[in-house]
Design a protein around this nucleic acid. Structure first.
Lengths: 337, 337
DNA sequence: GAAATAAAGTTAAGCGCTTTACTTACTATT
DNA sequence: AATAGTAAGTAAAGCGCTTAACTTTATTTC
């Protein structure tokens, strides 16, 4: 049987209170006693039950992480980064894929509350605001990750999507591109913001993005294919395309190749997210990198902060994305390329 | 404050034992009382603390999952499938990426023990057997996923890698290929088994795989590039290549293209895992699919089974992989292709 | 209608820990 | 040597729940 604090106390000839103090490094314990207790703990391979500890008002040292789908490489990387920072601070992470379903979201939030997690990181667009209000009324700290939701007074840590779109646009312009198009996930806020930033960059140069050059797509292979084909069959093809996710960008490059349209020879492509897709793609995909590691660090630290001081008002932290240059964009001003 | 069982009991005018019985559907409770208690629970938004329940000897309804790296698409899909089946049975999943590091593995196992998880699924090659023996002596059920370890008497659920390699080999042979090569992850058991199966298929046809055609690689972009180049610069190039992971296969295809070697025109390629890479690749990558969903289902169910009856001896379940045909292999017997 | 049986509830102990309030044993101060 | 002050340790209550053992109430049986 797993040894308990009583076993340790008995074997060491002290009270359980003393053992508890040794374990938690609190109170006054002589060096002699401390050593004796530690030795016994070693011998018994004693491990305090965090369950019991949590029941007495201590933390559970567990956080919940809600993502839409962990099988999506972007969220997999997010989860990995979050996990790293959580582990560093002694926290375990319960992973929850909501699959964009309201029911799953609700179920998971309930589960997390039952388990009394210390806090929750939400990286999925909320379907059910009332569930979140319940978190609030229960004083369970939570934080929106990469999702901005004005209705919720929680902390928010997100990439500056507008800026990302702007960067993409300006980069293409800098490379001499003027006839531009975008394939954007308009069904998602981040997609719309990226579009907005992109438009902004163009209008700063007096260029307007016309609606045939704005194509809506979901970031799934099939849908991205259709969108790509639509774009590739435009009577007047753009010279530069911004896809709001790497997956869309890579699928676009494949479709282009099938039609003997060279990338970047005939059309330049820029993606978003800097996932493994961008790295593997051929040519390497120039893309806007979300600062995933920084986002994760801020997220975990902010969450722990509001676990400690629950009354803190929610901050909104927006981190700048960065351009990662690979080979998918041609410099039109460079006649040798 | 979060309401407790006492709050419910008081408001409903019954004892806490009665409330407990209503919650767990045990004992004898009249319909009238049950309804009354349920109503109060609703009003108070009462949620039983699984912490407290677990402390009284019940399950924690939490399992731990150890993977090497959740950011790796294959493990991301594994995690997703496991998560689905865990959730279905009311379990939460604590995710742990060991990063192939002994220290992290140990830390996480310790964490999971402290949290008193009901069981652990291990999808990473054990670095520290003694840690696992500790699990055994503590009677914490665990299960090896997609990893076979003879020293451990636990359940094992894995893909039949030998068979997978065999399938790959036979498929290439069926398509008329005779000069074959393999890029294999020889540092990992699964890679070695896949190689073995591949060799077997060839030797069944009286063909021997010679050592220049066996190239070792780690499943990372840089290393896969080097391995691919080595293969592509062989004086006598093979007509068919088996890469033991999709990532290697895709990188190989890219390197081939750079050298103006057509896939599948000049060289056919077959991968392993059927990850998103295979789907996105152009041409679509023919690959051996691991039955991830089935593996996950078996894994979760077997684990829960041994949580219920801890004394059951460990079974070894090996599921057959399946070939997924796309466009990366040319049929040499078909002169029109 | 009394005794036996079944149904519906309750009491109280215990799960493994933390923590407050308390006791005991020293050390320092005058 | 008496007093105060500090250091080291303990006793016991309580966290929110489950459950065995028990009591009370209702139902059946002859």
């Amino acid at each position: 049987m797993k040894p308990t604090i009583y076993d340790v106390a008995k074997k060491a000839g002290v009270s359980i209170a003393t053992v508890s103090k040794v374990v938690n490094n609190t109170g006054n314990i002589s060096d002699r006693t401390r050593k004796k207790v530690m030795k016994v703990m070693q011998e018994l391979e004693y491990q305090p039950s965090s369950l019991a500890a949590a029941l007495t008002g201590k933390r559970t040292f567990t956080i919940g992480v809600l993502v839409p789908d962990i099988a999506n490489p972007f969220f997999a990387e997010v989860a990995r980064a979050l996990e790293n920072y959580a582990r560093e601070t002694g926290y375990a992470m319960i992973l929850c894929s909501t699959d964009y379903q309201r029911k799953r979201e609700q179920d998971y939030l309930e589960l997390l509350m039952k388990k009394q997690v210390d806090g929750i990181i939400i990286a999925t667009e909320p379907k059910d605001l009332s569930a979140f209000r319940k978190l609030q009324s229960r004083h369970i700290p939570f934080l929106m990750f990469s999702i901005d939701h004005l209705a919720l007074p929680s902390h928010v840590v997100t990439t500056d999507d507008i800026r990302g779109g702007y960067l993409a646009g300006r980069y293409l312009l800098d490379k001499g591109h003027r006839r531009l198009a975008i394939i954007a996930e308009l069904s998602r806020p981040s997609g719309r913001l990226r579009l907005e930033g992109f438009k902004q960059a163009l209008s700063d140069q007096g260029i307007e993005l016309e609606s045939p050059f704005i194509i809506d797509a979901i970031s799934k292979v099939e849908d991205a294919k259709l969108a790509s084909q639509k774009l590739l069959h435009l009577p007047e093809k753009p010279t530069g395309v911004f896809a709001t996710t790497d997956l869309i960008a890579v699928v676009f490059m494949n479709e282009a190749r099938k039609l003997h349209v060279q990338v970047p020879g005939d059309i330049s492509v820029i993606g978003f997210d800097n996932t493994i897709h961008a790295e593997i793609a051929d040519p390497g995909l120039t893309t806007i990198a979300q600062p995933i590691d920084d986002l994760a660090r801020y997220a975990v630290y902010k969450l722990l902060e509001s676990i400690e001081k629950p009354e803190m008002p929610g901050h909104r932290i927006m981190l700048a994305p960065a351009l990662v240059e690979r080979q998918s964009v041609k410099d039109l001003k460079d006649q040798y390329s």
